[in-house]
């Protein structure tokens, strides 16, 4: 099965000033440092990690809205560049982005209907009447009744606005949706509505998702495969059930163990000490070793590569956790 999206060795380094502001020594911030993955058509890859791990930068590199320093992105058999030529524009139609905050992604002065039709207008799709028709059918698909057509974003709730953002993306009939924390700004009862909607839309329109989130609980709900990022690199990748029930990388283990849920209340946590190091001065060897309870001498000198494990998962660790599940399946 060939993948719709293939990402190989993606790198983005920023040259910034170190401590001391303008007079600091020039240093390299490794935002994304060799990320590879592939998403088959109609599937969802969940990209998780804490702030600063490079997950949002990865999204922008994949879409070609940010120029990469190295690596390759293939979408539907064609390379994705960041030079804004005719191919870049046609690829825009097929790859759409959904952001976290729907209110700032919408224009407050345009009605919902105008905003949903706007992308089709920009890409010159169909006549005015067809666009109107299409907008109504897409709004129906995302669960917005036609009475919202002439409303303004401020008259809508957060969940409804996120539906408008989705409708705007879907009117172009894209193949890939890159969702960056699409439900993080929503209330609990509304989050479930939007998660279910995303799952239904994937089925209905055969969509492929790159789903970025810091919330592992949400990612588990939508993803067919999960990649965990730490300081610009993927440290573990695999089936969500395997990865969340028996994490192989100590960082994944800490991440899963840190999530408080009603089901796991009262259980002691193996809390991870310290803050994540800055992506400017990444530690030598494995970048997780200063916080890792399993670190040995080798981890301090040699960076582990992302290697396949016996069960088909990938982990970048010299001493992956193999047998002990982090938490028993309840």
């Amino acid at each position: 099965m060939s993948a719709l999206l293939e990402v190989e060795g993606l790198v983005k380094h920023y040259h910034v000033r170190g401590g001391g502001g303008l007079f600091g020594a020039p240093v390299v911030l490794k935002a994304v440092d060799g990320v590879s993955f592939a998403i088959p058509a109609g599937r969802t890859l969940g990209l998780v990690g804490e702030s600063g791990c490079g997950k949002s930068t990865t999204a922008r590199l994949v879409l070609g809205t940010l120029a990469r320093d190295d690596g390759q992105v293939m979408f539907d058999g064609e390379p994705v560049g960041s030079v804004r030529d005719a191919r870049w524009r046609s690829q825009r139609r097929a790859m759409q982005m959904v952001y976290q905050d729907p209110l700032s992604a919408l224009d407050r002065r345009l009605t919902v209907g105008k905003q949903v039709m706007e992308p089709a207008l920009v890409h010159g799709l169909g006549a005015a009447a067809e666009r109107h028709e299409k907008a109504l059918s897409i709004m129906d698909a995302v669960g917005l009744s036609s009475r919202f057509f002439d409303r303004y974003p401020h008259e809508l709730s957060g969940g409804q606005r996120q539906r408008v953002v989705l409708a705007r993306a879907l009117i172009l009939s894209p193949k890939l949706l890159v969702c960056d924390e699409p439900i993080s700004a929503l209330d609990v009862s509304i989050q479930a509505q939007v998660i279910n909607l995303l799952v239904d839309l994937q089925e209905k329109f055969s969509l492929t998702y790159l789903f970025i989130s810091h919330d592992l609980k949400v990612v588990r709900q939508v993803a067919h495969e999960v990649a965990v990022m730490y300081l610009g690199r993927v440290v573990e990748r695999g089936d969500p059930e395997a990865l969340f029930h028996a994490p192989a990388h100590p960082y994944t283990q800490a991440l899963v163990g840190a999530i408080p849920t009603p089901r796991t209340r009262g259980r002691a946590r193996a809390a991870l000490q310290g803050d994540p190091p800055s992506p400017i001065n990444t530690p030598p060897g494995c970048s997780f070793h200063p916080r890792c309870p399993r670190a040995e001498a080798r981890c301090r000198s040699e960076a582990p590569l992302l290697r396949p494990l016996d069960d088909g998962r990938f982990a970048a660790c010299h001493f992956p956790v193999l047998s002990t599940p982090a938490r028993e399946a309840a």
Binding site: A192, R220, R327
Partner: peptide
């Protein structure tokens, strides 16, 4: 409803039961 709408990392994966409507 809040508990039914809550995704979890443990236990079986199930479709979430969303609370309809809004606050």
């Amino acid at each position: 409803g809040l508990l039914a709408a809550l995704p979890d990392v443990a236990g079986p994966r199930r479709r979430l039961t969303a609370i309809p409507g809004q606050v």
